[in-house]
Write a protein that binds this DNA or RNA. Structure first.
Lengths: 100, 100
DNA sequence: ATAATATATGCGTATATACACATATGTGTT
DNA sequence: AACACATATGTGTATATACGCATATATTAT
């Protein structure tokens, strides 16, 4: 009778997705990447955190297929995997009334 | 020079928003509420958790203004505060390819 | 092969948080 | 007022996780 009101698998999957976006360091990284492809060193400067910390978060973002990467010599360039992600963020920004 | 790539306040605010949605219990509650207004007891049954646990999460959802509520006698009915929330979830479902 | 540079990973720790339990508060009924 | 019922809240605890440090790996240059 309440079948439409509950969907455990979906709820778990959704929550996992949002969990990735729920850390401000990761969000800074994601936000920067929605604007431009960047390598780890650049990201490290932009978000003003250690290379280790950025790398730690990039691994998580990779695991969740939120970002993709390509090697170019010593450097690895990261970018947003899917433009849906940008859409979701933009919708949220509008929702939060945080446009500037 | 990288001003457009970073916006600390916004990143924090976005991360906080997604943090609310990053718990599967809360997501079950939110999901059910996107379908229908419900009281605490009904929610408790639907997500199959104790009244205390549901109440704990509802407080957090209230604090984040993700849900609103109205009293009717002894019961309190909760609903989604803003239809933007449903939009964001629907976009995410499409993104995840989890439509059924 | 060695060195230098860019990035990744294992481990330890401090912090955050979801939930259980007990209890409090608010509302209607008698 | 006393009681029952629906919901909320304070406290303790177990678990999850972000990040630092040290170190490993991968790539290019000498």
């Amino acid at each position: 009778m309440n079948k439409e009101l509950i969907n455990d698998d979906l709820a778990y999957t959704l929550a996992e997705f949002y969990k990735i976006m729920s850390d401000h360091t990761r969000m800074k990284i994601i936000y920067a990447l929605t604007k431009k492809e960047l390598c780890v060193g650049e990201l490290s400067e932009i978000v003003n955190m250690s290379q280790t910390a950025v790398s730690y978060q990039l691994r998580i973002l990779r695991g969740a297929r939120l970002v993709k990467y390509r090697r170019e010599g010593k450097m690895i360039f990261y970018s947003i995997d899917d433009e849906h992600v940008s859409d979701i963020i933009n919708t949220t920004i509008i929702h939060l009334g945080h446009e500037e």
